[in-house]
Design a protein around this nucleic acid. Structure first.
Lengths: 336, 336
DNA sequence: TTGAAAGCGCTAACAA
DNA sequence: TTGTTAGCGCTTTCAA
């Protein structure tokens, strides 16, 4: 049974609760004899501290929550792994929260729902705006992930989407491509993330003296390979010609790849592709996918640094930090 | 501040703590006037119940933990999503635990680590044997997922791996394939899962009068596309000829597909492929992948049913339930 | 229908 | 170095 209390151990060892507590917490000033007796009692009774009680008293839960739209999206799953490992290393356990990108569920994340449950929250919003976040947010320590504009009051770790999109597009231009499309931004509510990437995309084209052809901007109904495949298939069937595609994320790239190949076009010879996120699968598609890779390990470590400072009581303005990224060039954008 | 206590609300509303508690818990026998006053006080103070305190008293945490090796493996990510949604629907939050398949971390899952933190544990072991599980397990309600032999004392939900492997292999035989290989079982410690699948594979071959060629059993160093690609590439380079491949999981199938195509062979014409798990990506590879699909929704619902019964106090012998599966036939195993 | 009070098991300030 | 004890904020029995 788990109903062994601190007092029971104390009784068996013939000491007070405080002494047992000292032993449990490895407090140094305990005589060896007493320590041995207490440890024997703990072992004999199979004592385990009641975490709820400890929490009630300390106000700390030792848990963090990680919130984003959907863990079955590979980028989030891979992010969850990195954050979870880093959290474990620092002595926290991780609670997983999915919002499906729904506004009211995102609101719950930054406001009431977590109170008292976790010491802090790491949150990558899909839908909430900076304004809304600062409006709804409560006292729980919070760090935002991702690329949207964040409220000045909240810590935030991102990559430089503009620069990365510029870099990816410039890479395609250097390959001699001129009819370059963009795939995968939201059809209805354009996210800040997509917007930044589109701006970087446009900037690179402008630098090369190419004006953006709005007909080559292929938005999708949702973030999925299926949705991107449909958008690209539809565009090709309408007779639209592209020789390169910058994709908002790797799922879009995988969908685009599939649609292009289904129509008998070759990648990269006819159409070069660059994706985004460097999910594991991009190294195993045929051809393998070039992609923008965020340094997720740095992202996670930085986010946890900021969060731990907040938990420790730091109350200054929001810090806005940039994690590095790189362009991973694979077969889908190799020079022919 | 979140330091508003039940007592503060009671003071402001001019009632006792019990009455406030009644209102918070929607206890019906509270007069309308009092209820309104209490609700106003709650709103004015921004009161939120302290969950740690509630837990200390009720002994319930409202949390479940889901444990498996690695959330960045797509099958587990997709499973986590399903389980998380189902848990949320039932009023639980989900804690994520990764073991990396390491024995001592798996031991922690079934023994001490979760005590007091969660009401129950759903665990898909990678390494632990049935014997070890029953040896180490403590009092936390536990349901096992997956296909390994489970201890008689523990609840367990699985799919019929033998039957599914038999079915997948028979499907390939019906295509006229005769040199059928198996890819992706562990090189060192063969898991129960792989074993069952290999047995089903062998059974189907035997039924068709084909003896298993041990040279066509391609084990891998780990569960990953890279590892499977290496194993298949190596086999092909050694001159081994296959006309079909049953893969232990979709990651292995994706790796195998890549290795086969790199060597100029065509799928399914030269080599047909069947994977396992029906991860989202299998619908977007080129060609799309045939695969064994477990009914994960049923799996999750059943696991939570069993777990909730355990949490409610059921103490009978372990139940061993089977979730249904199906063979999803896609391009990788179409008749030429 | 509402109030008073006894814990839940632990931590930590204070005493010895 | 060890013991005593007052809470942490809530639920819940029992009384009123």
């Amino acid at each position: 049974m788990a109903n062994v209390r601190l007092q029971d151990v104390a009784d068996l060892a013939g000491v007070s609760m405080k002494t047992v507590s000292n032993v449990v917490h490895a407090y140094p000033h305990v005589s060896a004899g007493v320590r041995a007796r207490v440890e024997a009692a703990i072992a004999e009774l199979g004592y385990q501290p009641n975490l709820s009680a400890r929490r009630l008293v300390t106000g700390r839960t030792g848990m963090l929550s990680l919130a984003f739209s959907d863990v079955s999206i590979p980028y989030f799953a891979e992010l969850a792994r990195v954050v979870s490992n880093e959290a474990t290393r620092r002595g926290y356990r991780l609670l997983l929260e999915q919002t499906d990108g729904e506004l009211d569920r995102e609101r719950e994340i930054v406001s009431t729902r977590e109170a008292g449950l976790v010491d802090g929250v790491i949150f990558q919003p899909s839908t909430m705006s900076a304004n809304e976040i600062s409006l709804h947010r409560k006292d729980v320590p919070l760090v935002l992930l991702g690329e949207q504009a964040a409220p000045v009051s909240v810590d935030h770790v991102m990559i430089d989407n503009f620069a990365a999109a510029d870099q990816a597009t410039t890479h395609l231009i250097a390959l001699g491509r001129t009819r370059i499309g963009f795939v995968g931004h939201e059809r209805e509510h354009l996210s800040e993330t997509s917007l930044r990437r589109l701006e970087g995309f446009q900037h690179a084209l402008a630098e090369a003296g190419i004006t953006v052809d709005m007909g080559l901007l292929l938005s999708t109904a949702e973030i999925s390979a299926a949705s991107a495949a449909a958008a690209v298939a539809d565009a090709l069937d309408r007779g639209i010609v592209v020789d390169a595609l910058v994709c908002r994320d790797d799922l879009a790239a995988i969908g685009a790849l599939r649609a292009i190949q289904e129509r008998g076009l070759r990648v990269p010879n006819d159409v070069a592709i660059v994706g985004w996120d460097n999910i594991a699968m991009t190294a195993f598609t045929h051809p393998t996918l070039s992609t923008v890779a965020a340094d997720t390990a740095a992202l996670a470590a930085t986010a946890l640094d900021l969060l731990e400072e907040r938990i420790a009581g730091f109350a200054g303005l929001g810090r806005h930090l940039v994690a590095s990224h790189s362009l991973v060039v694979r077969e889908s954008s190799l020079a022919p």
